[in-house]
Every structure is written in structure tokens, then in C-alpha cells.
Nucleic acid binder design. Sequence first.
DNA 1: GGAATTTATGGAATCGGTTTCATGAAATCG
DNA 2: CGATTTCATGAAACCGATTCCATAAATTCC
Lengths: 348, 348
Amino acid sequence: MAKSIRKKLTERVTITDVAHTAGVSKTTVSRYLSGQYHILSENARNRIQEAIRELNYRPNQMARGLKQDRSYLIGMVIADITNPFSTAILRGAEDVCKQRGYSIMVCNTDNDPAKEREYIFMLQSRRIDGLLINTTGRNNQFLRQLAEEHTAIVLVDRKVPELGLDTVGVDNELSTKEAIRFMINRGYEQIAFFTEPLEGVSTRQERANAFKDILIQYGFPVADLYEADLQQAEPLLKQLERFLESSREGKRAIFAANGVILLKLIHALKHKGLRIPDDVAIAGFDEMEWTDLIGPGITTVSQPTYQIGVTAMERIFRRLEGDHSPSQNIAFAGKLIIRGSTPSVKGL
Amino acid sequence: MAKSIRKKLTERVTITDVAHTAGVSKTTVSRYLSGQYHILSENARNRIQEAIRELNYRPNQMARGLKQDRSYLIGMVIADITNPFSTAILRGAEDVCKQRGYSIMVCNTDNDPAKEREYIFMLQSRRIDGLLINTTGRNNQFLRQLAEEHTAIVLVDRKVPELGLDTVGVDNELSTKEAIRFMINRGYEQIAFFTEPLEGVSTRQERANAFKDILIQYGFPVADLYEADLQQAEPLLKQLERFLESSREGKRAIFAANGVILLKLIHALKHKGLRIPDDVAIAGFDEMEWTDLIGPGITTVSQPTYQIGVTAMERIFRRLEGDHSPSQNIAFAGKLIIRGSTPSVKGL
DNA sequence: GGAATTTATGGAATCGGTTTCATGAAATCG
DNA sequence: CGATTTCATGAAACCGATTCCATAAATTCC
């Protein structure tokens, strides 16, 4: 009887309920919800407003999205969510989304192409409007598919030229060259470059190539480019030892291709009882909250991470608004922050 | 004509398309999608599978969710997404969600109740099934409303007793007492406690109270409890100076109530040219990737952050599965990691 | 002052799935 | 062998919004 009907009715408040209590049709309420106030009478507007308040109504986004073929959802696929670099980007991206009423769904892949694929499928099922991805580069086929379904995709940090998508990141060549040139000018005679495996990751490749180029340009031998797999600590330690054995104290320096490997290297140096910069100088990509606190301060290349997130998300919205211009590669300048970990070599 | 029809048809592949090409009804396809294989003939199963593959079909989660009144979405409202503490929890939560086919929507509030409220409304519109929240404590009314609409809510880190919700965090009293007691036993005669403003945040209050309790228990005066607003750097610096002026080198120590303030304090000490631990000893909550690298290493209270995220999310799913048992407060033990920043006082 | 236009509104179809219920065929039973 | 149960399937209603189209009333036009 009445009791059970009421129960059913109050279970979830729908647009129909609002229409009833306001004494208008669903259509009119819908118009109110989408902000088309100018075609509503003041009377209707007020009564709807009152009804919504009274019933504490919140429109169902799934119903809305279904009909409009829009989810107001952006996917963000990140290799490692605990990496401060990633979260700074996320922060920027999130701020832009919030402002527009979009929400971000985070997906953590651990650089695993299989996980990445699963997430792409899931996001596809959710009909995301946009995707911001730090890709493994192994699921290009599926990304292309997504792009064909009108999802606006922006690659962050890592490029995949064959996809022809917008990318946002830092100018790796420029920044790496600036940093290595700086170290050469400071008098270091042997510089090692440590990176995670290059295969398939454009960012790492660009930095490694810039390193090689600049060494060649200055007539240095390119002997110390180390690709370390960080899953196990051993390889990195071994490679570090190899470098230290082959080089002379006071004349050598290490450059880390990103913040993760920079941290690992500093750990390894501490573990071996080596001092910065006396035993070895060090610098690397990614400014982090602790880089000025360790020893004499670590020289780093700072990326405008928040800005990268903001810009990437803005490109997504530009695309969603119908911009069909050719894809852009947006590269911000990195900033070299010089600290005590890379002093001038004695005797210069 | 045919062309335009085809275009329309291939625009988005729907369950109807799959049904047609497989030569069965939507109902049958739906059963396949929800894994009810046992009631399908092998023939139908194969043809549907083939059709899905051929058309590259992905079911629309919005349509699904609309009918089922389930979004398979979990909201995660965080005060500061760039805080490593938060992302570690997110990581744990995300892993659990992925496994169950749920997705997480991240919301960054900056500890702003207004932003938090906006997010709660948005998440409500999306009909999230669960919410994991690090709340400002200023939107209890809306959280209660959400809970009434069958959203499973778990409070992380910060409690709000009046809401009667599940909470997951660390045992603040126990860990704080252990840490302060340790410092007292090491011979420090004056210990300062630095925290962000206590008002409304249970975690901070619990830690501050534990600090006071243990000092009283040991017969120390409670003179140095500093509430610093971190928005501007000044207050913290002033308070730090006040403490340093009132205390004696070699006999004093600082305890930071969380990782953020710990970092700020270390920065401030460096800024003032003070050495750890010679000029002042320091310890604090939250183990971070750099705490063992700064100076002699910083003594910290480590929280099982990943585990907190996993546990919180598991409680959400337990609730979604229909568990109506009384609410739980789950408190993990923190772990005191002793490092060089808190050596024994000379002469002990 | 009647025709044409504008304005405010609502009925009904629709989005893409799930779920209820009905049905015909095959299998099991006494 | 007829009655009953099981099995595989599909038609149609439904979830909660938006949107197309129709319509009555009010306004403007000549």
C-alpha cells in the first residue's frame, strides 16, 4: 500500500519526482538542470529550484551520460602513482578538470603493458571523453582504436611518434645537454649516465642520445652509459662499481636520467660509504622536495610538472571542443638548479 | 541510404549489433556478458564470443550502471594528493579496486571544506558505490546523507566519531607515546611538538594529546606544543626560534606530527644553519624516501600506508557485500625507525 | 483584427544495457 | 505415453536522464 510505494519513491530521488513536486514536466526540469534559464518562466524556475532543494535531488550522471554519449570522465594512466613526478602532473590535471566538472579516474600500471591494456579496455567501457597517458608504448593499437572513438588522447612525458597524438613534456635534449655541458665546464673528465632500460621509452632515449651527442661534441669517449633494471638492486650497484673502478676520484660525476634512479644512486653511494661530492659528484633529472637537503644539496633539472599536467589537460579540452588542428608536441624548458653536489673540480 | 545507415551503425557498437551478428537476442548477449555461461548453449556462446571479437565490442558501463543502480566507481577524497602519505594509500586502494573491476575517482581538496563539499556532490551525482575519505570534518551532514544512500564510506587517517563510520589508520596514541618516550630515555630534557592546526583533525589531536600525556607522566612541563599554520612560512620559523631560545643545545629535541611539517622543520633548520643532531635533535611521523639520506638519517614513525589503503578498500567491499556489523576503528601499529637524528644525550 | 511569430511547455522516443516473464522444445518421470 | 520439469531463448519493460517534435498561449506585425 501507500507505505511501500513511498518507500520505493524515496529510495532514489529522480527527475520525475522533482517534476511532480514542482508541478511541471521532466522536460522542463531537464532544461533547468542544463542551465537553460532563459526559456523558463520565472515561476517554473523558482518552483523547480525549491523542489530540488526540498527533495535534495542530485541528477544521475550515468543517465545523463548515456543519453548524451559523454561521460565527463577523463582517464589518467600512470606508470607509478607514488612517483612525485606523476602526482604533481595529476595535481595540475585535476585542478583543470574540477573547474570544468570533469572527474579523473586514476590507473596505475607499474609500467606493465598487460595492466595498461586492461585499463585501456576498462576506460573504453566507461566511455571516457579524454585520456592522459604516460604509456608503456606497447599498446599503440588500442590507443589508436580509442582515438578513433573520439577520445581525446594526450601523451604525457613519453612520446609515440607513430600515433600522431598530442604530447606534453619537457625538452629532454635541451635540458640534458645543458646539464652535461655544465658538468663538463665544471671540469669533470668522466661522466656516467644512469638510466632505466631505454627500450621503447622516448624520454629515456632522448636524454641518453643528448648525453652521447654532447660528449662527442666535446671530444669525450662515450663509455659510461648504464641501463639499470631497478627491479633488483644488484645490477645498479654492479654498474656503479664498474664506473667507480674505471674512474678517478675528484674528476668523475654521475648524471641520473630521472628522479627514481637518482634516489637509488644516492642510496647506493651511501651504502658504499661514498661522499658527495668528494668521492663522486652527482646530478640528475627531477627536482624533489628533498634534493636541497641531502649533503651539500643535489644539482637537478627541474621540470614544471604542475604546468605539464595543466597543459596536457587543457589540450584534451581543446580537442573535445572540436579543435582538429594537427597534433602538437609541447615541450617545456627544464631548469637547471645548481647545488653543492657538482662543485668545480679542484685545480681549475 | 545504406552508407549513412552503416555509418550510424558503426559509430558505436552496441549490444544490439552484437546480437544481430551473432544471430541471437540482446538478452542472450547480456547473459554472456555477465558470465552466466551455464545457461547458454555452447553454440550461442561461441557465436557471441566471435561477434564481440569481430566487432570489437565493449559494453557501455553507463548503461549497465544505470539499470543496476551501481556505478562500480569508488570516490577517493584526499586532502593533498602530492603528499606521499596519500599516494601510498591510493596505491593500496587502487590495487584492490582493480582486482574487482572497480575504478577510483580522485579528488584533491587542499583541506578546503568548500572544495570537499563540491566533490561530495559530484560523487553523489555519479552514484559512487564507495567512498574513501580523508575528511576536513566540516561536511558531516553531507557524508551522513551519502551513507544513507547506501554508499559505503570509510574514513582514512582522520576520525569523526559522531558519524559512526568505519575508520582505518594508525594507532596515534601508541606510536606517539613510544616515540616521545624513546626521546626521553635518550636523555632529552626539553621536547617540542610541532603540528599543523589541531582544530577538527582527530589525527593531530590524538598525537598532541599523547605527547602531553607522556610528558606529564614523566613529570616534564608541557611548554612546547606549537600549532603552525603552514600556508605562510613565518609562523613556523618564529615558533621554532622561540623554542630554540628557550632551550639548551644538546638537551633539546623536536618532534614533528607529520611528514609535511617534518620536512618544513628540516628546511627551517638548514635555513638557520643549524645542524642535526648537534644543535637540535629531531624526529617525526611519516617515513619518506629521503628520511634515511638527510644528515645522519631522521628518526621517524613509519605508517603502513599501503596496507592502510588496502584495508580501507577491503572494508568498503565488505560493506558493499552486505556486511551490516557495527562500525570498526582499525588502527595499525606504527613502527619507530631509529636513526642518527636522535642520538643519546652526551654524558648519559 | 486576423495572420505570423515567439514563448513556455509537455508527451513520447531514445540512449544501451539488465531483468522479468513467457514460451516452445527437450528431458525426465511415474 | 501423457504429464511434469528443465533448458535455452527472446520480447518487452525498465533504469533516469535528454531531445525531438507538437501545441497552446501570448505577442508582434501589417
